[in-house]
């Protein structure tokens, strides 16, 4: 089981949404981490063949997925960032409809099993039009899982879910991650920690770092500092990437991500994935100005 991206590039006019994206994925859960406009959704659209790359290709077990067409789509499960369903259909009808679209043989059993998995059994006969955002997303997950897809693509899957549902969803992804490749895009670092085996950090359509979570954390080893300061004024926040501010009796305790020692009293601390995100994606005011210029 191998999903390979070979120099996938996508241009929208002069803007490069994906820039020579090259990566090989095997069985497991992969997180795509990056700020808005990093190219996560474009990459997912390239995998699902919803958009055609300007150059490069995606290969499934060595075969071009565009040439595979329906054969590759048969292996896909996809939950887009935003989607709708037929409001007059019940959850059960919706599952049955997608069972036909996905050639699911034991549609009735699969529908029952998946609706139970996403905790929608009681609402199976309710019309989708009356569903809350969270319920709709759970139904979307059930639809994505129909037909036991080997590649599961989830774009911001936990957006709109309440904390309880998010935890439930993360556990669900862990349960179903065996024998398939799961790729999910997110902004939420804690979701990555809970689910992913590896993460890919994207910025400007390029991979800036990829690997297992420990590798990512190690990349900012010795770059995370704790420092007590009398206050945390705006100038301080503009000059440093501050991942946390705790009030203390004498002022504030700052958690700073920085290549060098930010203050004399700063001491190194163990980095977390949040620090990784901050290190690679948060810009100091100075960097932002440089980039704008």
């Amino acid at each position: 089981m191998e999903l390979r991206f070979d120099s996938v590039t996508k241009k929208y006019g002069k803007k490069l949404a994906l820039d020579g994206f090259t990566l090989t994925l095997n069985e497991g859960v992969y997180a795509l981490l990056g700020p808005n406009g990093a190219g996560k959704t474009t990459l997912m659209n390239c995998i699902t063949d919803r958009i055609r790359p300007t150059s490069g290709a995606v290969f499934w077990n060595g075969e071009d997925t565009r040439k595979m067409g329906a054969r590759f789509r048969a292996k896909l499960g996809y939950l887009p960032q935003s989607f709708g369903l037929y409001p007059s259909f019940t959850a059960k009808q919706m599952m049955e409809y997608f069972s036909k679209l996905k050639n699911v043989r034991n549609a009735a059993e699969e529908t029952t099993r998946l609706l139970e998995l996403v905790n929608l059994t009681e609402d199976a006969n309710c019309k989708v039009g009356g569903f809350s955002g969270g319920m709709l997303r759970r139904l979307g997950i059930a639809i994505a899982l129909l037909g036991a897809p080997e590649v599961l693509i989830l774009d911001e899957p936990t957006a709109g879910l309440d904390p309880k549902e998010r935890i439930r969803f993360c556990n669900l992804i862990n349960e179903i991650s065996e024998n398939r490749i799961v790729i999910f895009a997110t902004h939420i670092v804690s979701d990555v920690e809970a689910i992913a085996k590896e993460a890919v950090l994207l910025r400007g359509g390029k991979i800036i770092l990829s690997g297992d979570l420990q590798t990512l954390i190690n990349s900012v080893y010795e770059k995370v500092w704790l420092s007590d300061q009398p206050n945390s004024d705006e100038a301080l926040q503009n000059d440093f990437r501050i991942s946390n501010i705790n009030k203390t009796e004498n002022g504030v305790s700052l958690r700073i991500v920085s290549d060098g020692k930010p203050f004399d009293n700063a001491v190194r601390t163990t980095p977390s994935l949040d620090d990784v995100y901050l290190y690679y994606f948060a810009e100091t005011a100075e960097e932002e100005n440089e980039r704008t210029d």
């Binding site: 699902t48 063949d49 329906a70 789509r73 996809y78 369903l85 679209l101 050639n103 639809i143």
Partner: peptide
């Protein structure tokens, strides 16, 4: 978006 990525 959901329909267009299914087999049929």
């Amino acid at each position: 978006p959901l329909i267009s990525v299914t087999e049929n």
